[in-house]
Amino acid sequence: MALIETRGMTKVFRTPLKGPGLAGSVKHLFTRRFTDRVAVANVDLTIEAGEAVAYVGPNGAGKSTTIKMLTGILVPTSGEVHANGVVPHKQRIQNARNIGVVFGQRTQLWWDIPVRESLALLKEIHRIPQDRYEATLQSFNELLELGELLPVIGRRLSLGQRMRADLAAALLHDPKILYLDEPTIGLDISVKDRVRAFIKQLIAERGTTVMLTTHDLGDIEDICRRIVIIDEGRIIYDGDLQAVKDTFARERSMHFQLHHPPADPAAIAARVPGVKLVAGEKPEQLGVHFDRFEVSAADVVAAVMTEADVIDFHIDEPAIEDVIRKVYAGQLDLSAAEA
């Protein structure tokens, strides 16, 4: 059996159906009506040990709900979940020993005590031997720089500090599986880099299985090889990250820096049919978008150089971002990729 396996995992939330305003709320007191909202529908997921999976989708797609069912916080309405041989919501305590969880928006640290004491308490809770505890903290120190955080009281941590401390807290007991729910949300670039480097190190050195939800596509490209895309509670794509890019990130852009504004942009477009010209910030700049399977970059360069005086240019590599953006906008049918 795979490390994490779900079959037909479904979560339905019952929400009260209220009219608008106070009148609606009062009326609801007497005539209670509910509506079922399917947050996650029939999700089949199989994750092998050592995999790093990005779980992506627009807001409200069911990402967090999925994570919460995998971690045992929520009980699925129907379907099965197994993680490392246990049913998370039934064997919570056993499950807790196998997993580490970080929610980017919340902290598991105690609010009123220094980080050092929070970690010490978690050491007791997880029954970690002193020597292993110290070795683990030592190994985290390089990338998370815990030293400076240890004396700080929970509520005084900045967001970046908090995230570093929370990562340490979630991983003290060396869990097999790490769930990260938007771990880099709101962080500045340098902390983001550090968090990503830390997670990569964890995967490389400890073989930790990582499942990550994020809106930051940098996280995905940096950490994960596999991507699962969910929309309206259903998995619409599950597969190799590179394959998605090859199949769907067809659009490429080139950016030109010119001596003078182009005299006749239409002439450029006419030389390479199918391209789209976009004016740059300054009149001397020009962007060209094209489908890399229909037009070659060389043709585009040749066309622009014929019609204008080029100083410099660069190409944007196709990024997963484009795919995701289209999925979010509902413009992409991913079922083609699964075939």
């Binding site: 919460k68 971690t71 045992g72 916080i73 919570r92 305590i93 056993q94 807790a96 020993r97 997993i99 969880v101 929610f103 919340r106 598991q108 978690l122 809770i125 997880h126």
Partner: peptide, 8 residues
């Protein structure tokens, strides 16, 4: 949530 994620 976090209380459900600890082995206690």
């Amino acid at each position: 949530d976090f209380m459900l994620l600890r082995p206690v």
